[in-house]
């Protein structure tokens, strides 16, 4: 009798636990932290960033309950597929290859990619002839990696790193002559301190590489959820909330945005 009671209590506990873990009304959003100024933690440990604030505003507009789930970039699409979360809002660039796996919302931001070089560089520009024989640093598996690999893979030596911080360290050691990163990342990792500058034009074209910009990713079958977000995004853009959040993170000096934790 006692044993039966234990078993049934255990069963009830498990049932309650799983009910709590999987509340159908909650949308779990996967995010890779940190990626300043898009998503990061403040010194007090709270989530901040353009994606986070816009995501929360979208959820509020669409009357959904959302929570954020941290997930490393390499496993972020598999995490969506295996239902660890229901959406990805983590500065993910929309492109064809990803579209075959996931369903994207309308783009919510088009960030440029840019070349970064030491201020003392002798390179005149970023044409094929300038990059010949140079060491170019990129983040492995990013759209910048794909672009540089296809355009300059034959003339330059491309070094792929796991994170933008590793790229910054090897710019410091002089192993890299130039880096190609998306602008917010490069700005955060390299531009502070005046040792590096951007070179050439900021790039958002051609679309086959740089895509339509950042989108929120859903599983292919969750069309209704994606439509809710698209509708909410359109509303936020027309009522000024979007511009408010955009200005907070992308104004000239970025002083209005919460400061990231330095550790």
């Amino acid at each position: 009798m006692k044993r039966l009671l234990t078993v049934s209590l255990l069963g009830a506990a498990i049932a309650a636990g799983s009910a709590q873990a999987r509340d159908e009304d909650t949308v779990r959003i996967g995010v890779d932290i940190p990626y300043v100024p898009m998503e990061y933690r403040t010194p007090s440990g709270e989530l901040a960033g353009f994606d986070i604030e816009l995501g929360n505003a979208l959820c509020k507009q669409a009357e959904l309950k959302c929570n954020w789930v941290e997930q490393g970039w390499d496993g972020i699409i598999p995490g969506l597929m295996s239902r660890k979360f229901d959406a990805i809002m983590s500065s993910m660039t929309i492109n064809e290859e990803r579209r075959q796996q996931v369903l994207f919302s309308d783009p919510y931001l088009v960030p440029p990619s840019a070349w970064f070089a030491p201020t003392s560089t002798k390179m005149a520009g970023v044409a094929s002839s300038d990059l010949k024989g140079k060491n170019i640093g990129v983040q492995r598996g990013t759209v910048q990696d794909n672009y540089v690999t296809d355009k300059f893979g034959d003339v330059a030596n491309i070094q792929r790193y796991a994170s933008a911080d590793d790229v910054a360290v090897d710019m410091e050691t002089g192993r890299l002559d130039i880096a190609f990163l998306d602008y917010p990342t490069g700005q955060a990792a390299l531009l502070k301190g005046g040792k590096y500058k951007t070179m050439g034009e900021m790039m958002t074209e051609p679309k086959e590489y740089f895509g339509d910009g950042f989108g929120i990713a859903f599983r292919q079958r969750d069309k209704a959820l994606a439509e809710k977000f698209d509708k909410a995004l359109a509303t936020l853009k027309s009522n000024g909330t979007y511009d408010e959040i955009h200005d907070k993170y992308f104004n000239e000096d970025g002083t209005n945005a919460p400061q990231p934790d330095q550790n």
Binding site: R140, D145, Q159
Partner: peptide, 21 residues
């Protein structure tokens, strides 16, 4: 992890390009 394109590095590149783990 130190940018050498060994077997695992190449597999990583291809995985992250085609999302086909």
């Amino acid at each position: 992890v130190v940018t050498i394109a060994d077997l695992t590095g190449v597999a990583y590149n291809i995985y992250s390009r085609y999302y086909a783990p």
